[in-house]
Simulated assay, not measured.
Amino acid sequence: MTGAAAIMRRWGRAVARWALIGLFGLVALSVAWVGLYAVAPVWGTPLMLIRAATDGAGMAQRWVPLDQVSPHLVRAVVASEDSTFCDHGGFDWDAIEAVFEANAEGKPLKGGSTISQQTAKNAFLWPGRDWLRKGAEAWFTLLIEQGWSKRRILEVYLNIIEWDDGVYGAEAAARHHFRKSASALTRREAALLAVVLPSPRHWSPTAPGPYIARRAAIIEKRMAVVERDGLADCAR
C-alpha cells in the first residue's frame, strides 16, 4: 500500500467515525428535545421564528392546558384532521399510500399527515415538503408517539398550530377571531376554526365564504360522530 493510499484510508475512517458520532449526537439531541417537550410548554417553534424573521409576522401565543380548551374544538380538529388519531401509531398508512401514488404520477408531495405528524413538524422542524424534511418528520413522529401520551400530543398541537398570520394556538386564535377564551368556544366556532387549518392565512373563520361555511357544517356533523363513537376519548 502506497503512502497516499494509507493516508486516504485513514482519512476515510476518520470521516466515517465523525459521521457516526454526529449521527448519534443528533439522535441524542432529538430524544432529549422530545423529552423536554413532554412536560414543558412549547413557547416557540421553528415556524414561528421563520415567519417572524421573513414576513415580519408576530408571535401571538398563549399556552393553556388541554382542559382549558373547549371539548368542541378537540372534537372538531379530530373530525377535520385525523379521525383515527386515537387508534394509529402516528401514521395513516392508507393516506400515505395515496400520497405516494399521487407522487408517482408527478403530482406534488403533500397530504396524508396525521395530527401526530403535524405536531412533530410544527414543534421541531422547518416548513417544506422535501424528502429530508419528511424523513425528519417521520423520526420525530415516532419519538412523540413513543414518549408522549395522545393527550399530550393533542395538547401541544392545539397550542402551536397556526390559525392566522402570527397567531398560534387555540387560546390566541379564540381571542383573535372570536374575542373569547378557547374554553368558551361554541360548536360552530370550533368547526370554523378547524376547517380553516389547511390554509389559515387565507381562510377566515369569522368571515367564511360559501365553501368554508359548507365545510364547517360538514365538520359539525362529523363532530357528533366523534363524540358518539369516542374517537377523541384518548385526549381526556
Rank of each mutant, 00 (worst) to 15 (best):
I21W: 12
D130M: 04
A53K: 12
E145V: 05
G230W: 03
A79K: 02
T114D: 12
G209H: 12
Q61E: 01
V34R: 11
W43Y: 15
A52P: 14
G56F: 13
S83C: 11
S113C: 04
E97Y: 14
S30W: 06
A191F: 06
A170I: 00
A52L: 01
V99C: 07
T54S: 14
D233M: 13
K110L: 10
T2D: 13
V15Y: 08
R129Q: 03
A98Y: 09
Y211M: 10
S80L: 00
G44I: 04
H72K: 05
K110W: 04
R201C: 02
L231F: 08
W131H: 15
A190Y: 09
A136P: 06
T2S: 13
R129W: 05
T45V: 03
R152P: 06
R152A: 05
R9E: 01
Q61F: 07
V39D: 11
M59R: 15
M1F: 07
Y168M: 04
H177M: 01
A170G: 07
R9D: 00
G58F: 05
S30L: 04
T141F: 05
V34Q: 10
R17W: 03
A182T: 04
P208E: 01
K221D: 05
A16M: 08
G35K: 13
P205C: 02
H177N: 05
G3N: 14
Q68V: 04
W18E: 02
P208N: 09
P41L: 04
P65F: 10
R236E: 10
A102Y: 08
A120P: 11
H202F: 08
V69D: 00
K180A: 02
G169R: 02
G112P: 13
L192H: 06
F140K: 07
P198K: 06
F140V: 00
L125Y: 06
E155F: 15
E105D: 15
V69G: 05
A5T: 02
L29V: 10
A184I: 00
T114F: 12
V78I: 14
S149L: 03
W33P: 08
P46A: 03
L109A: 11
